[in-house]
Simulated scan of single mutants.
Amino acid sequence: MNSTVGQQLLVRDTFTTAFMKNFIVVLVWFLLSYINGSVVATFFRHQIFYEDPRYILFIHMVINDAVQLTVTIALFVVSYVLYTISVGVCCFFILVAVFTTRSTPVNLAGMAIERYIAICYPLRHAEICTVRRAYMLIGVIWFISVVPDITDLFVTLATEPLSFFQTAVFCLRPNVFKDPVLLYKRQAFDGIYFSLVFLTLLCTYLRIVFAARALSTERTSAKRATNTILLHGVQLLMCLLSYVSPSVEGILHIIFPGRILEIRFANYLIVYILPRFLSPIIYGVRDKKFRKYLKRYFVCSHPKIDTRVECKDEEE
């Protein structure tokens, strides 16, 4: 995003418009928090899930998306209420948002590989995909997600005086990490990351399709797996939007001058909020086993229905 657009973002909405925008995003945050909270609670209440690498990777992505959404909504609200915050606080929020945003596509790649092994190498799946390796993979995901962008902070510490971190800015990444080299570095890493993840999803999808044709007995499972990977591909495309959105905002501002706040709000809903709905849907609603326990969780927790005995019997 160029400096002109960054300056335009400081233009304030009317009180009514700002209130409505903040009300909408906070309402959406509560809705998604309830959905994600229910999914996470269902996961941890049933041992069958946290002993399965597939669901471990899934719940990691749900928690990651919940943190990412909370941080971005906090920044959105702050941009309307306070407008500027100290650089030090802004650095923390931006880095957490960047780390969680970058880890999502890498997590998608790991989940696609797990599905590929389950369909194409079913006899070795339990040997290859263990709980221990799932947690090791999560550690690798965070290492890959954190290392490239934490260098932005080190470069800024080396090039900016300490007094800079006490100044107040509108909390945007280009306003904090100003070195032009960092922009080219981010673009290079974004291209590498998403190219590798896209190729991973494409290769696993094609291999599962071929396996489904060769093994008629596994066609149903393979079809579910290919549909899941297709949805992961949609998630990946939505993740890509977060990296092109600054340029899109700049272009739209040129086409629709004076509408930067409306453009920014629409961009935020499409790029940051909409993709967060997909994670609980792919495994939380589409997956039969998880859906069964998720429905049971809602029914058993309903205060007006005494189904504790029934639910307990089903659990056993």
Rank of each mutant, 00 (worst) to 15 (best):
residue 197 V to W: 03
residue 199 L to D: 04
residue 185 K to E: 09
residue 219 R to C: 15
residue 187 Q to N: 11
residue 213 R to W: 06
residue 227 N to K: 06
residue 163 S to T: 12
residue 234 V to N: 03
residue 188 A to W: 13
residue 269 L to D: 05
residue 166 Q to F: 08
residue 232 H to M: 14
residue 179 D to P: 06
residue 208 I to E: 06
residue 220 T to E: 12
residue 197 V to M: 13
residue 261 L to Q: 15
residue 192 I to H: 01
residue 259 R to W: 15
residue 171 C to S: 13
residue 165 F to I: 03
residue 230 L to M: 12
residue 240 L to W: 14
residue 257 P to I: 13
residue 170 F to A: 13
residue 196 L to D: 02
residue 202 L to C: 06
residue 148 P to A: 04
residue 204 T to S: 06
residue 148 P to I: 00
residue 161 P to E: 02
residue 166 Q to C: 02
residue 279 S to Y: 06
residue 239 C to I: 02
residue 280 P to H: 05
residue 209 V to A: 08
residue 278 L to G: 11
residue 277 F to M: 02
residue 175 N to R: 04
residue 164 F to D: 07
residue 205 Y to G: 03
residue 228 T to R: 00
residue 260 I to K: 07
residue 166 Q to D: 11
residue 176 V to A: 09
residue 245 S to V: 14
residue 228 T to M: 11
residue 238 M to H: 04
residue 275 P to L: 03
residue 250 G to C: 13
residue 183 L to T: 08
residue 219 R to H: 14
residue 165 F to E: 08
residue 155 V to F: 09
residue 273 I to P: 07
residue 246 P to K: 13
residue 235 Q to R: 03
residue 185 K to C: 00
residue 189 F to A: 12
residue 256 F to L: 11
residue 253 H to Y: 13
residue 240 L to T: 08
residue 194 F to I: 15
residue 252 L to D: 02
residue 255 I to M: 15
residue 260 I to E: 15
residue 221 S to A: 13
residue 275 P to K: 01
residue 211 A to P: 03
residue 203 C to M: 05
residue 160 E to S: 08
residue 203 C to H: 12
